[in-house]
Amino acid sequence: MTVSARTEDYIVTDRGGIVENRHAVHAAVVDSSGKLLYYVGNPARMTLARSTAKPAQALAILETGAAERFKFDEADVALLCASHSSEDRHIARSRSMLARVPGLQESDLRCGGHPAISEEVNRAWIRSGFTPTGICNNCSAKHVGMLAGAAVLGAPFVGYERPDHPVQVRVKRVTEDLAGLGPGGGDHIAWGVDGCNLPAPAMPLKDLARTFAGFAQAADDAATDDEGKAAPVGSGSGGAEVPIKEERTRRMARIFHAMSDHPEMVGGEGRFCTLFMQAYGGGLIGKLGADGCYGVGIRASQQARRISGGGGSEGQALGLAVKIEDGSIDILYVAIMEVLEQLGIGDPDIWGKLSHFQHLERKNTMNVVTGQVTPVFEVHPVDAAI
């Protein structure tokens, strides 16, 4: 099903009532089958996922067996998915994960250091004269995880960041599977190089949303499994092998729960990803990507059933992907919360906890409010566009 992209969906910023900027908004809401339900702007916009791809990359790491081999716990798995703030807890856990992989050294990381996302951490680093190295990178745990995966596969550490390395070949295959896309013809996945030096996928926004719906659906499916099927993946021997599809569902569910149970590892103090997942209390996961990209996986609920029109008492899980055309991150958070409120995902208490992200105030250096940030879009049902 195709829809006509809307060119008038914006978030407007003004100063004294004078329009200063119009930030074009694109969003896609899909069910777990990938069916497009609602949209803003162009739901098929080819979009570099950047760090929004980390849950998919984490799944590729888990499917090597690295988490079992090196005893990565749930907080470690959450950190695999993180764009963390380089707080002490993030760096310490990344170092711990690295130390569990025989022969792995920080010098093997091909991500490099950079100023922390957290201004508080940056100020502390400056006061102490500290120079951040690769283990401080906001993507450090993902890099450690990929090197751990290389160790399990018997692949070299050198070149793990290259597209033809066995780890990246697996990441590519998993990313295509989750999005329901192949390497050629029609909708497809293209690849660039991310800020942390790893391959970064680009895909239509609606297919990025499908990826996140898949993680939420896996959490629901795993929760309904019989108790006898709930043994950890890769645990022990003796007895029939767990079917591949079931293994993937459990690993995806593990990633969902790791992120929702340890949101402090995914972002950090005061960060949107962390506060967002805390506010929704396990009902969803969310992941930021650089330059204004975001993915949300929403578990099935009565609210989701109303949106999807799905059968049964709860309906299907949902996925939401959002892109701000000019890459603005603060405008991105406004858009996410506006879409969810328009769809009725959440309640006034939840939205209230996150209102400072949705209802921005523009202030000058004297703390005087100088303008407004106003969404001027509506979330459109697909049927209305046919």
Rank of each mutant, 00 (worst) to 15 (best):
S85I: 01
S85H: 10
S86E: 08
S86K: 08
S86I: 09
E87F: 03
R89F: 03
R89D: 06
H90S: 13
R93K: 14
S94K: 05
S94G: 15
R95K: 15
M97C: 07
L98I: 03
L98K: 07
A99I: 03
G103Y: 00
Q105P: 00
E106Q: 14
D108N: 13
D108E: 08
D108L: 06
R110I: 04
C111M: 12
C111F: 06
G113M: 04
G113T: 03
G113R: 08
H114F: 00
S118D: 10
E119Y: 00
E120F: 01
N122P: 00
W125I: 04
I126N: 07
I126L: 13
I126P: 01
G129C: 11
P132Q: 09
G134H: 01
I135S: 04
N138F: 00
A141T: 12
H143R: 07
L147W: 00
G149S: 12
A151G: 04
V152I: 13
L153H: 04
L153E: 12
L153M: 15
G154N: 11
G154R: 13
P156D: 13
F157S: 05
V158M: 11
G159A: 12
Y160E: 03
E161S: 13
P163G: 09
P163C: 12
H165Y: 03
H165N: 06
V169Y: 04
K172L: 09
V174Q: 12
T175F: 01
E176W: 02
L178D: 00
L178M: 06
A179L: 12
G180C: 13
G180Y: 03
L181Q: 11
G182F: 01
G182W: 05
I189C: 10
I189D: 05
W191E: 02
V193S: 12
V193D: 08
D194V: 05
G195V: 10
C196T: 10
C196E: 09
